[in-house]
Write a protein that binds this DNA or RNA. Structure first.
Lengths: 259, 259
DNA sequence: CGTGGGATTGATTGCTATCAAGATATGTGG
DNA sequence: CCACATATCTTGATAGCAATCAATCCCACG
């Protein structure tokens, strides 16, 4: 029923940097206060900052969850691998995302994480969480906000995977991932955004095979709805794509997504 | 590809009770500190306590998210309905679950919630969240724990739906829902637990039709793995069911579930 | 220029959805 | 406690979407 991912990707290694020497260029919109809180506080309390190369593993499912992480830059994937190699991508982590914070009860990570392209994350000891929270009350709100966003994203994926056809799911996926990318500030003059995912990523996120994602994308492309490939994503007909996804809601000026 | 749920279930109405007059019998294990924190604090700060009859809606997707809720007793479903009636169940909310707390950025609920059987929930104003957090630092940890558990559950469902066959998914679903039910304390002498879900619930949670859930359950039953029906669930062969689900991990005395 | 990862395309298989009809259960009013 | 109404569960036949299996093509790179 499902494609195998037999590739051995896990090369564990990351460059650890003293937090004091790291200066991150603000490449995100400054008007987005909410999102920055997490990153700022994370940077401040980080035990260390890690630079991950493409394919490097941040942590693996089952390991002791002694640290949690906040993405400062780049993309990462959260995934689980079944015994026979089937892979389910749970979510993509963009800057501001919190990783490995299962809530405290769980002593082990519930999924694996690896970098797509080069990524930078702040590492914080899980044990220090309640201390930080008592000093930085806003951090709790920020964390809850981040976790809430992650939950929404998981619900979206679940709906795509469970109750949408491949065509609808891919269309919906592209719409929401593009929206997330834009929130982080990136944007090109022609409306294209940076898009480091390959078709296998999309498939593993939506419970489809890469082959079928290929066919689906090809059709969407031929209909003039999107342009994907070469690390770029451009939605050429947002309304049409939303209609295809089955989530079009007319509203004021800017069409809004739902479901 | 998918079943329709054309039934009109939404009868909105709930009995509102003054929190001071409500005494809840502790029907859960007292050794479970973590879980109780949420309920205790929620009861203390609740604007009101609501009693929902079976099928009553707590809130609907798209409504202004002015309140968030903590389940005190009973079961509820969180779901989304697509335009053509397809329904995706996002999760089931058992006592201790937090509902409607999307993180603060979202001003609207991202899903609908209704009661399965009779349920009791505490309602808290979203606006008071940060105030409560500053007074009750432990509430932040408890909320994060609850949200984290919800995320884990969503990841489980996503993996079931995306990368497992119907047979594997149903087996895995029964294992994890049974575990959650047990954590709430209920348990019968023969190992059966209260199970208010019907086959359509299971199907809508796993992206399957009720018909196919029926066939799948029937097969699992005939193999002596489980007994389901009449509001009860009994796992008669836990190891076999785990093998079927593809998540069996030999370990110490008690076999543990993973993935 | 090879090399390898990723994208395409075609042919075929198969798991689940659909459509249809009954059989059981559960619940309600008299 | 019975009769009817509705919900839920079963079972069978058929259709369809997406997986599988297999090449081939393309392009970035050393």
């Amino acid at each position: 029923m499902v494609g195998l991912s037999l590739v051995t990707r896990q090369k564990r290694s990351s460059i650890v940097v003293d937090p004091r020497f790291v200066k991150i260029a603000p490449h995100h919109r400054e008007d987005n206060r909410e999102d920055n809180t997490v990153r700022d506080i994370a940077r401040h309390y980080a035990r260390d900052i890690r630079l991950l190369q493409s394919g490097n593993e941040l942590f693996a499912e089952g390991e002791a969850a002694e640290m949690f992480f906040v993405v400062l830059d780049g993309w990462l994937v959260q995934y689980r691998i079944l015994e026979d190699g089937r892979r389910q991508i749970l979510d993509f982590a963009l800057p501001g995302a919190v990783l490995g914070l299962s809530g405290g009860a769980a002593a082990r990570y519930g999924y694996s994480v690896e970098a797509i392209g080069t990524a930078t994350v702040a590492a914080l000891p899980t044990s220090s969480l309640s201390d930080i929270l008592s000093v930085e009350p806003e951090f709790a709100v920020a964390l809850l906000s981040s976790t809430g966003a992650a939950l929404e994203s998981a619900f979206d994926s679940l709906t795509d995977t469970g109750r949408r056809t491949a065509r609808e799911a891919v269309a919906h996926f592209l719409l929401r991932i593009e929206q997330r990318i834009r929130q982080d500030g990136d944007a090109a003059p022609d409306g294209a955004v940076e898009f480091p995912l390959i078709q296998e990523h999309i498939g593993d996120a939506l419970g489809l095979t890469a082959v079928h994602v290929c066919r689906t994308l090809r059709k969407l492309r031929s209909e003039g709805l999107v342009e994907v490939g070469r690390g770029k994503l451009r939605i050429t007909n947002r309304r049409g794509l939303a209609l295809t996804a089955g989530v079009f809601h007319e509203q004021a000026a800017k069409p809004r997504l739902a479901c």
